[in-house]
Amino acid sequence: MNERRSFFVITCLAFGFAFLYIPILSMVVFSFNASKLVTVWDSVNSPTLKWYHVLFSNEEILDAAWISLRVAVVNASGAVVLGTLAGFGLARFEQFRGRFTLNAMTTAPLVMPEVITGLSLLLLFVALEETIGWPAGRGITTMTIGHMTFSMAYATVVVQSRLASFDTALEEAAMDLGARPLKVFFVITLPIIFPAILSGWLLAFTLSWDDLVISSFTSGPGSSTLPMVVFSKVRLGVSPEINVLATLTIGVVTLMIVGVSLWMARANRLAKAI
């Protein structure tokens, strides 16, 4: 297809991307600002890494980041297993009892306002604790369960859409050559949809790492995550350290996204070559 975009469309693209990126770039720029008045550029002492040092000596933030990291890793791994199973079931099993319900249950968390999910999970944990004594109190475990519940929905979508464009002849060929269904899944299906599983993992990780609302409802004392600490700081006004944190986040995400998409582009080419 030739490139056919009118002047109007190109202008919209330019403004749209400016809108998306100016806030992000401003955070990056001001993270090197020396002034404590975050948005007033101190041209005498800037650029400086001062706030980077401040951030890395802030115990509260570092502790919160460590908790967030642990929750995010466990969450992503669990969510991707559940999401792969659900995605596989939805993409491959044409008819089974509960298909409609499963589909609805994996779609709803994508749009459900987080305050509702958060509140309902908390009330569940409280009720469970009252009746069976588990989970005792709230903390990292309850938070992880909460995160898994909504991030598995995203993982499901990613895996399901990859499987929808998957040539089932490959699986049939493997079965024709004598592999049993379970073996086919591990030897053929899994390696081919691995890029989707990886992006599902990364997506689940990011969702957990960024989540504020569900964490706030399901966390307990002493288990504040990074977004919770950031939120309480931001509520009091702008703070230079947050710019630094944002810049680091953006850097990591950019590297990750670019790296993964290059790798996936290569994997796709390979898949097409087969």
Partner: peptide, 19 residues
């Protein structure tokens, strides 16, 4: 388009305070 979607919502909203 996807990149901002992967960076923390909280931090991106915070950016607007500064702006």
């Amino acid at each position: 388009v996807i990149l901002p979607f992967w960076t923390s919502l909280l931090l991106r909203v915070y950016a607007w305070i500064g702006l």
